[in-house]
Design a protein around this nucleic acid. Sequence first.
DNA 1: GTCTATAGGCGGATAGAC
DNA 2: GTCTATCCGCCTATAGAC
Lengths: 205, 205
Amino acid sequence: MTPTENELNILQAAEKLFTEHGYNATSTTDIAREAKCTQALVHYYYRTKENLFQKVFLNKLKSLVELIKKPLEADCGFEQKIRLIIESYFDLISQNRALPLFIFNELVSHPERREMIKAIIHDAIIHEEVFASFDSSLHEAVRQGKIRDITAENLLIDIVSLNATTFIIAPIYANIKGNDDTAQDDFLTSRKEEIVQLITRGLKA
Amino acid sequence: MTPTENELNILQAAEKLFTEHGYNATSTTDIAREAKCTQALVHYYYRTKENLFQKVFLNKLKSLVELIKKPLEADCGFEQKIRLIIESYFDLISQNRALPLFIFNELVSHPERREMIKAIIHDAIIHEEVFASFDSSLHEAVRQGKIRDITAENLLIDIVSLNATTFIIAPIYANIKGNDDTAQDDFLTSRKEEIVQLITRGLKA
DNA sequence: GTCTATAGGCGGATAGAC
DNA sequence: GTCTATCCGCCTATAGAC
């Protein structure tokens, strides 16, 4: 029942390689090498490559949703909440920079995997009413004339879009500009503040 | 010198499949089937898969830059220009919906391809001074207090981020919501207006 | 549980006939 | 220019010894 060391190593290796290079570009041989075991063992524990991938993908999606829930539940004014959402989401991706493109890719190229997202969204957000409470506090702010008329959906998509793309572009940008790490860090901090500015100002009534 | 029909069919098939499924997920056999010829012919005309891919990628990048240049050069007030840029860029991607993810992917997973972008940006934008003139008209607007302090770089990245992600998310969103095409179209028109609102309001001083 | 060995399939690329 | 046939390598997956 308790997982052996190899079993865990394989899962972690798979997480690393799948998120960095995607499903197609990762072979079970690569995973075995990264996990320092034989390729046969990968199949012994996880049977098929697809099955191993789904475990990884599900883990990533769940942890992503969990981390997004916190700032949504924060107890503070609406404007502060927005800033909190943006910044904590930004920091989250910052710890896991390959995640946005990885998720976009797998959802676009393998439509059957969208079912996973459906289930997770339903379980973690709608059922627990986190989203609903954020939605109603947004409506309240709109009704009071504090912010312009906007749906929670559009607002969240704005935030996700700006944050996710920033991390997709960052390595490309740094590479084109001159390829050092400080260039990329400067870019990221500049973008983080710009996103907060754009959203908070863009919400004004 | 003038390309034969097969040569052209192969290129078009490659364009379609590479942009839709990416480099790794597209085989030369797939391309041959789509072009209605044998797989040997693909290699006869383009020698290697990598070589064929580079031709496709370069074509896409060039046409993208060309189409972006027009609204940048438009002769009108600053606020109208912003709206024009967003809307024409939105319509452009709308005609070629797989393009954003395709380009992000290939630039992230194959860093050597960033050299292409460097050269293109230099040739098409910096050398022809389109970008410089947009940059100076932006500074002018900032100096006059019409808009807040923002760099052209940040503004263009905001626009590209919001537009590109919209089209990446659209099929996923529609699929989760109920999977019909009208849901997706509604989503897109809603997003287009939201992006214009967010950017123009978010620029205010 | 872990290994070696190998089956079986698909990929890119080329040779050679027409 | 276009085809068929084929080489060779890598991939996933499994069989079977220990």
